[in-house]
């Protein structure tokens, strides 16, 4: 689980705020994989929103008579060990899975932006303290941090995601700080300061808007990590409380039925794989669209 794959993202120097969004968008749309990924993600988010309403059956309804049915006309993706419709569980699982990942990223990005901005803008002692704290968190193995957080807070989807989110904080902090440092020296910031703008104003009006793009890119990638990390914690026995349908938990249950009922793990597993692939393609597309350095013949 790539809990703290951290600086995976920020190879590119801070892109300047792309003046003409439509260009960026066109570049993105030309990236076919990214476009496909975006469509898939939209579908998933739509499912997450519509949730159980579009599922053909109740995802939690137990029906022992129908257990472990292979895919057929009635149950397109078969049934699980309790006779629950696998398709319905995958569809209904979109919401908890996505919501959880979004919460984790929210925590990581929120804390990361605040800490990173503080460190990058204030510099000096604040910077030193924040970055040493991040060094400590980075040196602390992510999975252990997550396990310990879950041990303290107890199991359950939300707690798992808090655990994952906390372990992703350093990635965002470092990214934001790095971006801030480079932007701080840019002419428009220097001139803003020269004409007497206050710190808060500079931060809010000039610096942060330039950081968002990168935070957005990292967030997309981190969304994938969060889903994987969550499923790994499920594997270790710290996950959602049944009978909530969640892809990681269902995949882990299905793994134990791999020999008897391959479809049980295939469905949620494929959902995870597709979503993460989509996230990655979208991430690549966004990066290429925003980063002029990569726009070369």
């Amino acid at each position: 689980m790539n809990v703290q794959a951290t600086s995976a993202a920020p190879p590119a120097p801070a892109p300047p705020a792309t003046g003409r969004p439509s260009w960026a968008w066109r570049r993105f749309a030309r990236h076919r994989l990214a476009a496909a990924g975006a469509v898939l993600l939209l579908v998933v988010f739509a499912l997450a929103a519509a949730g159980p309403m579009v599922a053909p059956y109740s995802p939690e309804r137990v029906s022992i008579m129908d257990r472990l049915r292979p895919p057929d006309a009635v149950h397109w993706l078969g049934t699980d060990q309790f006779g629950r419709d696998v398709l319905s569980r995958v569809v209904a699982g979109a919401r908890p899975t996505c919501l959880a990942a979004v919460i984790a990223i929210g925590i990581a990005a929120g804390a990361g932006v605040v800490l990173g901005a503080a460190a990058g803008y204030a510099g000096g002692a604040v910077d030193g303290a924040v970055m040493r704290a991040m060094d400590i968190m980075l040196a602390f193995p992510g999975i252990l941090l997550a396990l310990v957080v879950v041990t303290i807070l107890g199991t359950g989807l939300l707690n798992v995601m808090i655990a994952v989110g906390v372990s992703l904080i350093p990635a965002f902090t470092r990214l934001v700080r790095g971006a801030m440092l480079s932007i701080r020296q840019r002419e428009f910031v220097v001139s803003a300061r020269a004409i007497g703008c206050g710190s808060v104003r500079i931060l809010g009006r000039h610096i942060l808007p330039n950081v968002w793009a990168q935070v957005a890119v990292l967030s997309t990638t981190a969304l994938g990590w969060a889903i994987i990390a969550g499923s790994t914690l499920n594997f270790l026995g710290f996950g959602v409380h049944p009978p909530t349908p969640e892809w990681g938990a269902d995949l882990n249950t299905g793994r134990e039925y791999l020999n008897a009922a391959w479809w049980m793990s295939t469905a949620p597993g494929t959902a995870i794989v597709l979503v993460i692939l989509a996230i990655n393609f979208v991430g690549d597309g966004v990066t290429e669209a925003l980063d002029p350095a990569l726009r070369r013949p």
């Binding site: 137990v62 022992i64 060990q81 309790f82 049944p242 009978p243 249950t253």
Partner: peptide, 10 residues
């Protein structure tokens, strides 16, 4: 007991 508990729950 994971599976048993879910059946009991139902």
């Amino acid at each position: 007991f994971d599976q048993i508990s879910q059946l009991l729950q139902a």
